[in-house]
Simulated assay, not measured.
Amino acid sequence: MMGLGFALGAAAVLGLLWLKGRFAGFMAQRPDDYAQDVRQIDIRRDLNGPLICEGVIYGPLGRVVSRFTGDFDVSWQGNRGVMTEHFKYESGGEQHRRWELTLGNDGTIRASAPDLVGEGTGAQRGGSVCLRYRIRLPEDSGGHVLDTTDWMYLTPNGTIVNRSQFCKYGLKVAELVATMRKVEAV
């Protein structure tokens, strides 16, 4: 009988943790939460041209497991954009990605990249962008498919702060925090 009580208690705790994360945490945010922001993001303006990215990746225990910089180049033709990313990791590794972005007139976003499983979807509202997608890690990182939620927030000086969470089976396995800012003209 004690085993059943323990199992029910553990299930209740896990259920409460899931509810907290779903309705009160990072994953509970919605684009409309930011619709009234004073500063409005427009990815065609704010994610355009050459950008520098700097960030860290946290592992499942909350400790920094990787640091990186990235050189991005983004160009737009109307509501269709291409963003190329070149990451350099502190470990010496490098990574390249090419995103194809489509911005709907209602602020919805569709995104594709070679390492995505299916298409990413999201929206820009107020001073924020949310994008959700499934990403396949490189084979040397296990080849796992992770559910990803990216939130980007526009700051008053035009820098974008990006926070992403990566989940497997509903459990957070990594988090990324980075800044993106325009490269200063020389």
Rank of each mutant, 00 (worst) to 15 (best):
L8F: 13
G9H: 04
A11M: 14
A12F: 09
A12T: 14
G15Y: 04
L16Q: 11
W18L: 12
L19C: 05
F23E: 10
F23R: 14
G25H: 05
F26M: 03
M27V: 01
M27L: 11
Q29W: 10
R30V: 07
D32I: 06
D32Q: 11
D33Q: 05
Y34W: 09
A35W: 02
Q36I: 03
R39Q: 14
R39N: 09
Q40I: 08
Q40M: 03
Q40E: 09
I41S: 11
I43F: 01
R44K: 14
R45D: 14
D46W: 01
D46L: 08
N48R: 11
C53A: 15
E54F: 07
G55K: 04
G59H: 08
G62I: 08
R63D: 14
R63V: 13
V64M: 13
V65D: 11
V65H: 07
R67W: 06
F68Q: 10
T69F: 09
G70H: 03
D71Q: 15
F72H: 10
F72P: 00
F72Y: 15
W76C: 12
W76N: 07
W76A: 08
W76H: 12
Q77A: 15
N79G: 11
R80H: 15
V82L: 15
M83T: 11
E85P: 03
E85G: 10
F87Q: 14
Y89S: 04
E90T: 06
E90A: 15
G92H: 02
E94K: 14
E94I: 11
H96P: 05
R97A: 06
R98S: 06
W99M: 12
W99V: 01
E100N: 12
G104S: 12
G104D: 05
D106Q: 03
G107H: 02
R110S: 12
A111V: 03
A111W: 00
S112I: 05
A113R: 09
L116C: 02
L116A: 02
G118P: 01
T121E: 13
G122I: 01
A123M: 10
Q124W: 01
R125Q: 08
R125N: 04
G126E: 10
G127N: 00
S128M: 13
V129D: 00
V129M: 07
L131V: 11
R132E: 07
Y133T: 04
I135R: 05
E139R: 13
E139W: 07
E139C: 01
E139A: 15
G142S: 02
L146F: 03
T148L: 04
T148R: 08
T149F: 05
W151G: 01
L154W: 00
P156H: 00
N157I: 08
T159I: 08
V161D: 01
V161P: 00
V161Y: 01
R163A: 09
S164A: 15
S164D: 04
F166I: 01
K168F: 08
K168N: 06
Y169R: 10
G170A: 04
L171N: 09
K172P: 02
V177M: 14
A178T: 02
A178W: 00
T179K: 03
R181M: 06
R181V: 03
K182S: 10
K182V: 01
E184P: 12
E184H: 04
E184N: 10
V186W: 03
